[in-house]
Design a protein around this nucleic acid. Structure first.
Lengths: 109, 109
DNA sequence: TTGTATACATAAGATAGCGATGTATATTTG
DNA sequence: CAAATATACATCGCTATCTTATGTATACAA
């Protein structure tokens, strides 16, 4: 696994971008998708995930819809209209940031 | 400027990699080099820089040499032998991490 | 029936970087 | 020449985001 601090500031854009691509996901699904797509290299912990989702909802970036499969609740999240703008900004910011850091970090052999 | 949190975990590898490429630098020089190379997009604050340098020295990754130009002191830092190994590890970790995140973060149009 | 997976949630703790502040010398500019 | 800016070091308090731990509860497989 990676140094814990590297994820700081990245998780939110990652979650938002997944929702942009998939349209509608619930929390647990997000953790599993990320785990699979990164071959286990990144596991979003619940302690990080749920506070982020709640905040994004409170900020009007996401809207939520409860659903039940049997008795178990699922909360499906989806981008709001303003959320779609937010994603674009955040994702571009991270990609720009990565490009900038790459100017400084050529591989060390 | 970028979201402040994005830099977390990145500054140390960046500093180490600069020292790997330049052999010998002092703190202020590092901040200026980074500023120039990133066209002002990244400015390492002193509150971040000096604690990092001190920690790396305490950990035996860097060694320091004082020099005076006139009366003003400069502390030149350089990688130790074990430090050279550390750089390789850290830089590769960040590059690997970036590649992994890029699997999740394609540009949002 | 016991363990694992699913699915939500929160609280305490760790930590890296920022902003502010401090000291002091050197250089540029009005 | 005085004032402003640049150089060069340093530390402290604050904050944001994450981890770890803990909690609740249902579904399913061994």
């Amino acid at each position: 696994m990676y140094s814990k601090e590297l994820l700081k500031g990245i998780l939110q854009p990652v979650i938002l971008n997944l929702l942009r691509e998939h349209g509608r996901m619930y929390g647990y699904e997000i953790t599993q998708r990320v785990k699979k797509l990164t071959e286990g290299k990144i596991e979003i912990t619940e302690g990080a995930l749920y506070p982020i989702l709640h905040k994004l909802e409170a900020d009007g970036v996401l809207e939520v819809e409860k659903e039940y499969t049997g008795k178990r609740v699922r909360k499906y999240y989806r981008l709001t209209d303003s959320g779609i703008v937010t994603v674009r900004e955040k994702v571009n910011e991270v990609n720009d940031f990565f490009a900038t850091i790459s100017l400084l970090l050529k591989p060390a052999y």
